[in-house]
Design a protein around this nucleic acid. Structure first.
Lengths: 329, 329
DNA sequence: CATCGTTGTTCCAACGATGTAAAGACCGCT
DNA sequence: AGCGGTCTTTACATCGTTGGAACAACGATG
């Protein structure tokens, strides 16, 4: 692998001049510049990022701390994050926490200025005392605890209200919610939006229609749906706090020959790619994931350049994708 | 951030002694070792990986070059790869190519010994002349062209034969295949397995039942299925070269009120998480993804340690997950 | 007590890049 | 010719770490 030294020898100039050419420094004689460029070409020189970053005091990496790549929402987001980071010449390091407190602590402890310049976090269980980061960080979605970090995400209350309002507008009156969770800030806000939409329509809030979910996987949605269908007076609609729960719920409904949307309307959250292809396809709250990724990376760029900026809170847009799980073809 | 120098000053020893303690060198006086360890603790020292790797000539990263994280198979694989790499103290750098030749070339060109120690590749369009890697690499799945790189993956012919044999055992006689592709080695092998199973059962090979797919996304499966259902004599079963195609195909079938599995049985490939939750659930060839990830990383570890090893070819196990898309509940 | 081998420690150089300071080249001006 | 100023290049130190050589301390040995 060619180094600056090799290129310099070949071009007959000093190492620094080559460095200047590589970094686009203005004052290089055209003649030298040409010779250096030829030498760069001839040797196929690639800067050694480790060395460069050592000298510059930056690493060129940002961490993306998320529960699991096998969860479609995070996989899609990770893909967009990688693309957004590329614009800032950042590489993305993905750390999986599996949604556990110990996993999240482990991931955070391995972070640090020597490894990454900044971090994007999707915490689920972290406590306030864990947020002693040594690099700028952005939190995606809400966090139950109040920490002085920037946040990027949609307005969960408004989005949830919109989803439930949609169900109400279709004439549904017994609307259940799947995904309540004592620890997750996001769950609390989505529940709040659900209640707000009910209140707005003067519908009663029935706590027996709110089903908790320990995890947000398909299996949890399927289990939650079973308990709802076993009720003496089952719901005529369900608002699921993410699409995986909704997919699980739809699966249970199909097993029990409950017709969707006629007997039961379902709305999800996240708008995973798969949700347009289920049968019936799934109505879902669609956050603008690309906007989230861009906003997160932009925030980090600012915080890295000027570390004293106060935490910011960026609200990204969302929309409601209406599909067959609420409105039949 | 504390450096070795800071720790050394605090412990009253030389930098090298601290380095020796950090790296587990045996001959350090117990007394000094204790003092150094205390100082390490007190300062919260973390080695600067950039500097260490610069000195050691390694980077501590491996690249994972894949089409797209939004494709569930690759997302799941990436998660497992990260876990497997961790065992070898490697971090994983994910590069998305979007399945295009230019994307793949770009990703490969950005690789190099200064950035990663090794690479795992999932190429789709690469030509033989592109495989001029400067670091050890492993290819996942088949590649159309013959390159001197190690390979990890399942026996695609055997797996496809098993899938089609399963359909035949259920009495299906007009079995279509979705996913033929001129460039992809994997597609050729799955087609070969399909033909082998037909031949084995003395069923005729009908090329009009083989539908190509440019990409392997859900939309391509849906489109392919449309063309099959428009035939004068449509198939009674379909073997899809991946689960996304199968999900798309099922979606089209549902739109046309084709009953699965009664009118049409469907088998997919990859066994994505979502395939157990579709309605009906999807029968699929299930490669052992964890085994693939482990094998790939192990191969790379060997190749990095002894670069002269000849290319190897590791076959990982697979199974057929039989579900409702072929056998009704 | 000189010698030896084993331990334990320090000093120095190096990995590849870049910032700084200083030196050199060149220009026009008096 | 001498001066001041703008370009242009170079030598050197430095980022944090580790390998190697050199050195120091030690008890054991002849």
């Amino acid at each position: 692998m060619a180094t600056l030294k090799d290129v310099a020898r070949l071009a007959g100039v000093s190492v620094k001049t080559v460095s200047n050419v590589v970094n686009g420094y203005s004052f290089v004689k055209p003649d030298n510049r040409r010779r250096v460029e030829e030498a760069l070409e001839a040797t196929g020189y690639r800067p050694n990022l480790g060395a460069r970053n050592l000298r510059r005091g930056r690493t060129g990496f940002i961490a993306l701390v998320l529960p699991e790549l096998s969860i479609p929402y995070f996989a899609e987001l990770a893909g967009l994050m990688i693309a957004a980071a590329q614009e800032h010449e950042w590489n993305v390091l993905i750390e999986q926490t599996f949604g556990t407190l110990s996993g999240e602590r482990l991931a955070l402890s391995s972070l640090g200025p020597h490894l990454v310049d900044a971090a994007v976090l999707s915490p689920e269980a972290l406590q306030v005392e864990d947020f002693q980061l040594s690099v700028p960080a952005v939190v995606l979605g809400e966090h139950a605890v109040d920490v002085p970090l920037s946040r990027v995400g949609i307005d969960n209350v408004a989005a949830s209200t919109a989803a439930v309002r949609h169900l109400i507008s279709l004439g549904r009156r017994r609307i259940a919610a799947i995904g309540a969770h004592p620890q997750r800030g996001t769950a609390a806000l989505r529940l709040e939006g659900y209640r707000a939409a009910l209140a707005e329509a003067s519908l009663p809030f029935d706590s027996s229609l709110v089903v908790p979910a320990l995890n947000y996987h398909r299996a949890d949605g399927a289990a939650a749906m079973k308990s709802l269908l076993d009720m003496r007076n089952p719901p005529d609609a369900v608002f699921c706090f993410n699409d995986l729960l909704a997919v699980g719920a739809m699966r249970t409904a199909a097993e029990r020959f409950v017709r969707i949307p006629r007997d039961l309307a379902i709305v999800g959250f996240d708008d995973n790619d798969e949700s347009a292809y289920t049968s019936p396809s799934l109505t879902s709250v669609a956050p603008d994931k690309a906007a989230i990724a861009r906003a997160a990376v932009d925030l980090l760029r600012q915080r890295v350049d000027s570390p004293d900026l106060v935490p910011d809170d960026v609200q990204t847009p969302f929309s409601l994708q209406v599909r067959e799980s609420t409105v039949a073809r």
